[in-house]
Design a protein around this nucleic acid. Sequence first.
RNA 1: AAAGCAGGUCAUCUUGUCGCUCUCCGUAUUCGGAGGGAGGAAAGUCCGGACACCACAGGGCGGCCUAGCGGGUAACACCCGCCCUUCCGGUCAAAUCCGGAAGAGGACUAGUGGCACAGAAACCAGGUACAGUUCGGCUGUAGUGAAAAGGCCAAACUCUAGGCGGUGCAAUGCCAAGUAAACCGGCGUUUGAGGUCGGCCCGGCCGAGCCGGUGGGUAGGCAGCUUGAGGUUGCGGGUAACCGCAAUCCCAGAUAAAUGACAAGACUCGACAGAAUCCGGCUUACAGGCCUGCUUUUCAC
RNA 2: GGAGAGGUGCCGGAGUGGUAACGGAGCGGAUUGCUAAUCCGUGCACGCGAGAGCGUGUCCAGGGUUCGAAUCCCUGUCUCUCCG
Length: 131
Amino acid sequence: MKHTKKPYGLPASYRIKRKKIFDTLFSQGNSIYEYPFKIIYAETELPEPVPYQVAFGVSKKKFKKAVRRNRIKRLMRETFRLKQEFLKPGKPIALLIIYTSSKEESFDFLLMQMEKILSHLTEKLQNHGPA
RNA sequence: AAAGCAGGUCAUCUUGUCGCUCUCCGUAUUCGGAGGGAGGAAAGUCCGGACACCACAGGGCGGCCUAGCGGGUAACACCCGCCCUUCCGGUCAAAUCCGGAAGAGGACUAGUGGCACAGAAACCAGGUACAGUUCGGCUGUAGUGAAAAGGCCAAACUCUAGGCGGUGCAAUGCCAAGUAAACCGGCGUUUGAGGUCGGCCCGGCCGAGCCGGUGGGUAGGCAGCUUGAGGUUGCGGGUAACCGCAAUCCCAGAUAAAUGACAAGACUCGACAGAAUCCGGCUUACAGGCCUGCUUUUCAC
RNA sequence: GGAGAGGUGCCGGAGUGGUAACGGAGCGGAUUGCUAAUCCGUGCACGCGAGAGCGUGUCCAGGGUUCGAAUCCCUGUCUCUCCG
């Protein structure tokens, strides 16, 4: 038992905190899309003993007010927290989840789409993963 | 009671489950418990400070800012009181008076400059037409224009009075890790390069390295970081802004960056909006509730 | 978070108190058998007019100073740049 955590928790160690990881994501990352999310992901070494690290992004161009951006990032974090069981990577992976729409969607819709995109991602990783 | 105006104040609430962040406790980064967890504007960054570094921030020129008088304040371009000017309303009208609103409100009898078009003439003056004349280029009228010979403009230069050194927490100090004490060119070591971050000069201080290019490494942690011109209540002073004293309280501190989700319930169905060193103002955005004062109308006594 | 710069017609871009230059695009006309090139005219919006044309407004938005503002001052808004 090297690491335990609450099944629906999302502590700080599961979030990306290094600029270096963001640089790898932007230069070498692959992407997958399912409205309104876009996930940029890359298999890479992580500074913490966790299976994955996440970050959430909302464009300032699309949401000018800080309150709205905060709101959407909180909804995204919440949906990921509740649906993270659908993400089963073989290797350590970093992912950046970006909100691409310019309007705020309902929480239920976001839950559904988050489940979809994480399942697709897991599928894709298992097909191309251990090559 | 209703409507309007002005000022102040509050900013949906309650419970449960899941989750985030900080502090404390339990041998505890991971588990558990207790407690704290956005705003009146947190915003714009428009002013004023505190604080930090640059020299204990010094002199001159330049530059920038402020503008009635008095007070408040750490300070201000803010706030309070008074005066003045302009505008609106009240009495048939005017003056006065009463009520209200607005105002960057020193100086064009120091100088410089500007006054388009129109008009005979526009700031050095000059003198058109008509009429009257005491014949003196004297007076009046016409006409153009915002203004016609004594004026206007300083949110024109300027003058007067006063103020301002610069840079900003990505300031600054410390710890750890790691690369290359690399290569090329230029300047310099008491005959002084360079630094002293705003423009220039002077003076002073530091001073053996500095500048440009090529190429490479790291971008982690701690302090600053929240107890403060602090909040609440009471008493006292002052027309007021505000100040004094006493008691009491501790009320976010993140760093790819914490306050969210779901369920249930209540009502007046919830606006604008999210802390990033910290305060005092100003300005802008904003659903509604409550309180106080004034005015008008209606009803009751 | 902090420090600055700017916004002029469809596009680029001058003007910094007195009638909004200039270039390109577009549109109309001339030239041509047709097109390109060339030459001439034309900023935009609204209103009036049969038409030629005329009037009013317009320099990111609102307010102020002034006889008069794209220009000076204040407030807001949008865009861009720099700072370990």
